[in-house]
Computed example of a mutant assay.
Amino acid sequence: MSDRTKQPLTPEEFKSEVSRRGWTYRALAERWGVTENYVSKLARNPERALHWDDAVRGLPTVVVIRK
Rank of each mutant, 00 (worst) to 15 (best):
W52P: 00
I65H: 03
V39P: 03
N37E: 09
A43Q: 06
G33V: 07
K15W: 04
K6Y: 10
H51E: 04
S16I: 00
K15A: 11
K41P: 14
V39N: 05
L50W: 04
T61E: 14
R26A: 12
E47T: 01
E13W: 05
D54R: 14
L42D: 02
K15I: 03
H51C: 00
D54Y: 14
K6P: 00
G22C: 05
Q7V: 13
S19C: 01
E12P: 00
R20A: 09
P11M: 09
Y38P: 00
R31H: 10
A55R: 06
H51G: 00
D3W: 11
E13V: 03
P60N: 15
H51K: 09
W23T: 07
Y25N: 13
R4S: 10
V34M: 12
L42E: 03
D3H: 14
S2F: 11
Y38V: 03
R20N: 13
E17I: 02
E12V: 13
V39I: 15
L50A: 11
S40L: 05
G33E: 07
N37T: 10
T10P: 01
R21K: 15
V34T: 12
R31F: 11
L59D: 06
K15T: 07
V34R: 14
K6Q: 14
T24G: 12
L50G: 10
A27N: 13
L9D: 01
L50F: 05
L9I: 02
R20L: 06
K15D: 11
D53I: 08
F14I: 01
L50H: 11
E17T: 09
L9M: 15
L42W: 15
M1V: 10
S16P: 03
